[in-house]
């Protein structure tokens, strides 16, 4: 990394803070009482978090979001990895067609399946269940495509050596391909997790029971209860918003570089 002008560095810091100021200020606001916020006084309180978590059920929403995003990630990665392995290593009748169909899903907007998926799950009695939230999100064409490209870069000699020693396909996948694809798998896992964590329209239509709200739905409802009825309790809303942002934010800061690299690879290659 090159040394740099301290003035430029300071200016960059300011620009970054200014850009993020709405979110930074919302986090700051979440530690103020409503009265103090409206009066323009500065205080510190955890009261908004206590109310969001206790009275407004955000602990439950947080758990729901973790369950749904976690399961979608694990299942989605598993399914994508299995298929990617077959597409990367086997030539079989219909293989190219199926791979094409997988990649083509990237072009298909999700709204076309909104009403049909709602009907499918209603028929299966899975609306208002975790399964209903999770099942439609499991297939991920991009993850499969990305992993397949990555796996093709792994020398085939490694598989062949293992097959000589009598390994099964699953063993080769699990012992050789998966460990060597770790960077690709983890960046895809993160990508799926974030996308699912922030998913809004599907939980909005698939869930009516409050006990199954994800954070996104809970936050939108909490904000929507208020408008029209006098002053909004902004500090409370911002505490809920901070709870919604924080887990992904921390995860992102931990692995930012991998994710950005993954995105560039997917877009310009």
């Amino acid at each position: 990394m090159k040394p740099e002008n301290p003035f430029v560095a300071l200016l960059s810091l300011l620009v970054g803070l200014l850009f993020l100021s709405p979110v930074l200020y919302s986090i700051w606001m979440s530690f103020q009482t409503a009265d103090d916020f409206y009066a323009g006084r500065v205080t510190f309180t955890l009261d908004n978090y206590e109310r969001a978590i206790g009275q407004f059920n955000f602990a439950r929403y947080l758990i729901n979001s973790l369950i749904v995003s976690g399961l979608v990630t694990v299942l989605g990665i598993t399914v994508a990895t299995l298929a990617a392995f077959a597409f990367a290593r086997f030539r079989f009748p219909g293989g190219d067609l199926m791979f094409g169909a997988t990649v083509a899903t990237l072009m298909i907007p999700s709204h076309i399946s909104l009403i049909p998926n709602y009907l499918t799950l209603a028929k299966a009695g899975l609306l208002d269940t975790y399964a209903g939230l999770i099942l439609p999100a499991i297939s991920n064409g991009f993850a499969c495509f990305f992993l397949r490209q990555y796996m093709r870069g792994i020398p085939k000699a490694l598989d062949e050596a293992a097959y000589m020693d009598g390994a099964t396909h699953l063993q080769v996948l699990w012992r050789i391909i998966v460990p060597l694809s770790r960077p690709a798998i983890s960046s895809m896992a993160l990508y799926i997790f974030i996308a699912e964590w922030n998913n809004y329209i599907w939980p909005l239509v698939a869930v009516g029971k409050q006990d199954l709200y994800t954070l996104q739905i809970g936050l939108a409802r909490l904000y929507r209860i208020n408008p029209g009825e006098g002053l909004i309790d902004w500090p409370l809303v911002m505490a809920a918003s901070t709870i919604t942002i924080l887990p992904v934010l921390l995860g992102f800061l931990a692995v930012e570089r991998h994710l950005v690299r993954g995105i560039t690879m997917g877009a310009v290659k």
């Binding site: 970054g16 850009f19 606001m29 922030n198």
Partner: peptide, 23 residues
């Protein structure tokens, strides 16, 4: 760091962003 700052909203919950900007 600036790239990180500009990229941060892309991974942030859109509902949160909508609520924050409503304020």
């Amino acid at each position: 760091l600036l790239r990180g700052a500009f990229f941060l909203p892309s991974v942030t919950s859109t509902v949160s962003i909508a609520v924050v900007f409503s304020w």
